[in-house]
C-alpha cells in the first residue's frame, strides 16, 4: 500500500518532469549517502556511479560520499527522513530500504524516501564446498529433509536477504536448515571454503574467488533464465553453465537484489527527473557495463512506474516470507 502511493508519486513526477527536465541543477556538493560501510557492495555501487558521473562530466558538481551503514543501513534511511526535501542528497541501498521496516522497529517508513532508479540486479546462487556430496540443489534440500535442523547454511546477516532466501527455500520445499548468520558475504564465502558450513547463497562476486580456486562450486542460480555468457571461470565452467534452480526442480524462479538509488521524500519533480536522467546516462556508459561484468551483476535500468511495480512485487514476496517466519514487527 505504501508502495503504490510512492509509485503513483513517482509516476506523476515523471509525467510532470518530462518536458522540464533542465530546470533543476544541483547548486552545492551532492552527498551520496551509502547504506553500508566502506568497502561493501553498496559502497562500491555508489563509488562507481560517482566516478562515472565525474569522469564523463554528467554532473559538474562535487560529490561527497558518506558511509552510514549502522543498523544494517537504517542509519542512512533515517538520515534521509531527517533531511526531507533536500535535493542534494542521494541515498544508495538495496532492497533493505523497503524491507528493513518490516523486520525491525525503526523510526522511518518507506514513504520517507522516494525511489529514483534501480541500476543493477545482483543474482543469488546456492554454493557448496567442492568436495560436498550434493550435485544439485535438490540433493541438498532432500538431505535437509532427512536430517532436519542439522545442515548448517551460512548467510551474511540475520533476517537479511540471505536468511529470507533460505527461509523461502524451506517454505517452498519443507526442508529445515540450520541458518548461521556471519558478517558479510566475504566471510561466509571463506566459512564455506573452510567447510564450517555446508552451503551458502552468496552473490556471484562474493564467491567467485573461491570458485576460481576450485574450493567451492555453484549448484544453481535463482533467476528465470541462466546468467549471461562469460569467459570460463573455473575449469571450463562459466556463469552461463550454471543451471537455474527451477531447472533443478526447486520452484523459486526469481530472487534478485536490486541496487537502488533514492531521494529524501518531498523533493520537487524536476529534481527527480534530473537524477533519473543523470543515472540513465551512467547506466549507458561503458564504465558501468564494465563494473557490471566485473561484479557479475545483471544490467537493468528501472525508474518511475516500472520501478514502483518491481518494488511492490519484491516487497510483497518478502513480507510473505517474513510473516510465515514470524519476523514482522508492528
Amino acid at each position: 500500500m505504501t508502495m503504490t502511493k510512492a509509485g503513483l508519486l513517482a509516476a506523476t513526477a515523471m509525467m510532470l518532469a518530462a518536458p522540464a527536465s533542465a530546470q533543476f541543477a544541483p547548486s552545492r556538493p551532492v552527498e551520496f549517502v551509502v547504506a553500508s560501510g566502506a568497502g561493501g557492495g553498496t559502497d562500491n555501487f555508489a563509488r562507481t556511479i560517482q566516478s562515472v558521473l565525474t569522469r564523463d562530466g554528467i554532473m559538474d558538481n562535487p560529490i561527497v560520499v558518506l558511509n552510514k551503514g549502522g543498523g544494517s543501513g537504517a542509519e542512512a534511511f533515517l538520515y534521509a527522513r531527517q533531511n526531507e526535501g533536500d535535493p542534494h542528497k542521494l541515498i544508495f541501498g538495496t532492497n533493505n530500504v523497503y524491507l528493513l521496516p518490516h523486520v525491525a522497529k525503526l523510526a522511518y517508513t518507506t514513504e520517507d524516501l522516494q525511489p529514483v532508479a534501480a541500476l543493477a540486479l545482483d543474482e543469488f546462487l546456492v554454493w557448496v564446498k567442492a568436495d560436498s556430496p550434493y550435485q544439485t540443489v535438490m540433493d541438498l534440500v532432500n538431505a535437509a529433509k532427512d536430517a532436519p535442523g542439522t545442515i548448517p547454511f551460512g548467510g551474511s546477516q540475520s533476517k537479511d536477504t540471505d536468511e529470507t532466501l533460505v527461509a523461502l527455500i524451506e517454505q517452498t520445499t519443507g526442508a529445515d536448515f540450520k541458518y548461521v548468520p556471519f558478517n558479510g558475504g566475504g566471510e561466509v564465502g571463506v566459512q564455506l571454503a573452510g567447510g564450517h558450513v555446508a552451503a551458502n547463497v552468496n552473490n556471484p562476486n562474493e564467491n567467485v574467488g573461491q570458485w576460481q580456486a576450485g574450493a567451492i562450486r555453484p549448484l544453481c542460480v535463482f533467476a528465470p533464465e541462466r546468467m549471461a555468457e562469460s569467459e570460463p571461470v573455473s575449469g571450463d565452467m562459466g556463469w552461463h553453465d550454471i543451471p537455474t534452480c527451477a531447472e533443478q526442480g526447486l520452484d523459486i524462479t526469481s530472487y534478485q537484489m536490486p541496487r537502488t538509488v533514492w531521494l529524501p521524500a518531498g523533493t520537487d519533480p524536476e529534481v527527480l527527473a534530473y537524477y533519473q536522467d543523470a543515472l540513465q546516462k551512467v547506466s549507458e556508459s561503458q564504465d558501468w557495463k564494465d563494473y557490471l561484468a566485473k561484479t557479475s551483476q545483471s544490467a537493468t535500468f528501472m525508474t518511475g512506474e516500472e520501478l514502483a511495480a518491481f518494488i511492490d512485487a519484491s516487497e510483497a514476496d518478502a513480507v510473505k516470507v517474513f510473516e510465515a517466519e514470524g519476523w514482522t514487527v508492528q
Binding site: 566502506a38 561493501g40 562500491n44 566475504g186 566471510e187 574450493a215 563494473y291
Partner: peptide
C-alpha cells in the same frame, strides 16, 4: 581469501573488485 582482517583491508578489497580483480586463492596465480 577475500577476507579482510582490518577495516582498511576491507576498503582496499572493495577497490580490488572495482579494478576488476577477484580476491581469492587464484589471485596469486592469475
Amino acid at each position: 581469501l577475500g577476507v579482510p582482517s582490518s577495516a582498511t583491508a576491507a576498503v582496499m578489497m572493495g577497490g580490488l573488485m572495482i579494478w576488476g580483480l577477484t580476491p581469492g586463492p587464484m589471485l596469486f596465480a592469475t
